[in-house]
């Protein structure tokens, strides 16, 4: 008799356990736990450590002490840091504008019926598949004061008399690295926008043509609004990538001349690693976060499903 009761109790406990595990909330938490742990370990820890270091005076080889906002206060009086913020904003804005203008233009071209379409698309992707450092070195060579192929070609055509000092003058250097970044960033924009363009039903264009729309009006009233959702996603990513760019600058100018091309990322690295001021470098890197959050929020609200995308079925 007693064993029967005990067995019944075990059964009841088992069934309660089973019910708990069957509960969708519990179940989803259990399934998400491993991924959550990994994210915490590999994303949050380095980020948290970086932010923490920004509040200390850590140097390489010497554990630092908590110094509050001192790093930030000194940075606000630091001309080089302020210049790097200006450079970063300029670099991001100008490069993004050009990447989108040329990328959209290329996407529209590639969306037409063209001979060798697959081949042309592959060519457009080339800058994207070459390692950044390799292409940066190629640009460095092209911008060289003595061996620049650009200067050489212009001289040969008789357009200029002497070689251009691409990387020796602040504004020329800024323009040069921006050009390199644009070259490298176009494929991403062009291919993403091309994918977006291909989701637009051709019958919309036909309907618009019958409604009396010219090619420009079709672009303005059909292409742009229907492409907007994907455009804003691509814009967000492009801004984030450009804002945090490091490789191109470091390989081409290392921030020179006279800090004219120092971005926040390169300055943070230079202060922290070669300069040994880990705390200050971390503070510079942390100072990028508000900008990035602002950019993300902006596109988050821009990205929110527009009213016309809501409700109903997808067809």
């Amino acid at each position: 008799m007693a064993t029967v009761v005990r067995e019944a109790a075990i059964e009841r406990r088992e069934s309660r356990l089973a019910r708990i595990f069957d509960h969708p909330t519990v179940l989803s938490v259990i399934f998400m736990l491993p991924a959550g742990l990994l994210l915490t370990l590999f994303l949050t820890y380095p980020l948290g450590l970086g932010i923490w270091l920004g509040f200390t005076d850590t140097r390489i080889g010497r554990p630092g002490a908590f110094i509050g906002l001192e790093n930030y206060i000194s940075l606000f009086g630091d001309g080089v840091f302020l210049l790097s913020v200006f450079n970063t904003l300029l670099y991001t804005t100008v490069a993004t504008v050009f990447k989108f203008a040329i990328g959209l233009w290329l996407a529209l071209l590639l969306n037409n019926r063209l001979p060798f379409k697959a081949f042309l698309r592959a060519i457009v992707l080339l800058p994207f598949i070459i390692p950044t450092v390799l292409s940066a070195i190629a640009f460095w060579w092209m911008y060289d004061t003595q061996f620049s192929i650009i200067s050489f070609a212009l001289v040969e055509f008789g357009l200029i008399d002497e070689f251009i000092d691409f990387l020796g003058q602040p504004n020329a250097a800024r323009a040069s690295v921006i050009a390199a970044n644009v070259w490298r960033g176009i494929p991403f924009v062009a291919i993403c926008l091309l994918a977006g363009l291909q989701t637009i039903s051709p019958s919309l264009y036909e309907a618009a043509a019958l409604d009396g729309a010219s090619a420009w009006q079709r672009f303005r009233h059909i292409t742009v609004p229907t492409l907007m959702p994907i455009l804003s996603i691509v814009l967000t990513f492009s801004v984030l990538f450009t804002f945090t760019d490091f490789q191109l600058i470091y390989a081409i100018t290392r921030g020179g001349p006279i800090n004219a091309t120092h971005l926040m990322a390169t300055l943070a690295f230079q202060r922290a690693i070669p300069g040994g001021q880990l705390g200050e470098g971390a503070a510079i890197a942390t100072a990028m976060i508000p900008f990035l959050v602002a950019a993300t929020l902006l596109s988050y609200y821009g990205l929110q499903r527009r009213k016309w995308q809501q409700g109903g079925k997808d067809d």
């Binding site: 019958s203 919309l204 309907a207 019958l210 009233h221 609004p225 229907t226 016309w308 067809d315």
Partner: peptide, 13 residues
């Protein structure tokens, strides 16, 4: 001429 398409081709936005 005005045309009504099979998939309606309404402007979604």
């Amino acid at each position: 001429v005005a045309m009504v398409f099979q998939n309606y081709a309404l402007y979604p936005h």
